[in-house]
């Protein structure tokens, strides 16, 4: 099937780039391994869709493709939440900078009588 060939080609490309970057010391070895596992797992699911069904059945979900969708939703939710938390962190840093700027003309606590 065409889609399987295209997707696997893309994944092989990703795998190649991952290890190229690892050799260039852009990412660490453990990061490269983690990404490789992800790419290979995706490749296995694409080449042999019934493996997804096996995993799905283990989690009590009927169909492999359903399981992939559920897992994606959960993953996306976690990622979006992480972005929210990161934004909140940035907002607080921004406030801290705005505050420092607003207070710059006042004497420091030690100097005040």
């Amino acid at each position: 099937m065409l889609i399987q060939i295209v997707l696997i080609a893309v994944l092989l490309g990703a795998l190649y780039v991952t290890w190229r970057r690892a050799r260039q010391n852009v990412i660490t070895l453990s990061e490269a391994l983690l990404w490789s596992v992800l790419w290979i797992a995706a490749g296995v699911v694409i080449a042999l869709p019934q493996t997804a069904t096996l995993v799905a059945n283990f989690f009590g979900v009927g169909r492999g493709s359903d399981f992939v969708i559920y897992a994606s939703v959960v993953t996306l939710f976690v990622l979006v939440f992480k972005i929210f938390v990161a934004m909140e962190g940035l907002e607080r840093k921004l406030t801290e900078m705005v505050r420092r700027d607003a207070l710059r003309d006042l004497p420091k606590k030690e100097d005040a009588g």
Binding site: L94, T95, V98, R99, D101, A102, L103, L106, P107, K108, K109, A112, G113
Partner: peptide, 25 residues
């Protein structure tokens, strides 16, 4: 009067003001 260069919210304003009040003794 202190000025926040951009709007940061009431809580942020209170904290800046409180810090300023402490510095003013």
């Amino acid at each position: 009067v202190l000025r926040h260069a951009m709007n940061r919210g009431q809580g942020a304003g209170l904290k800046t003001g409180t810090e300023a009040a402490l510095r003013l003794g």
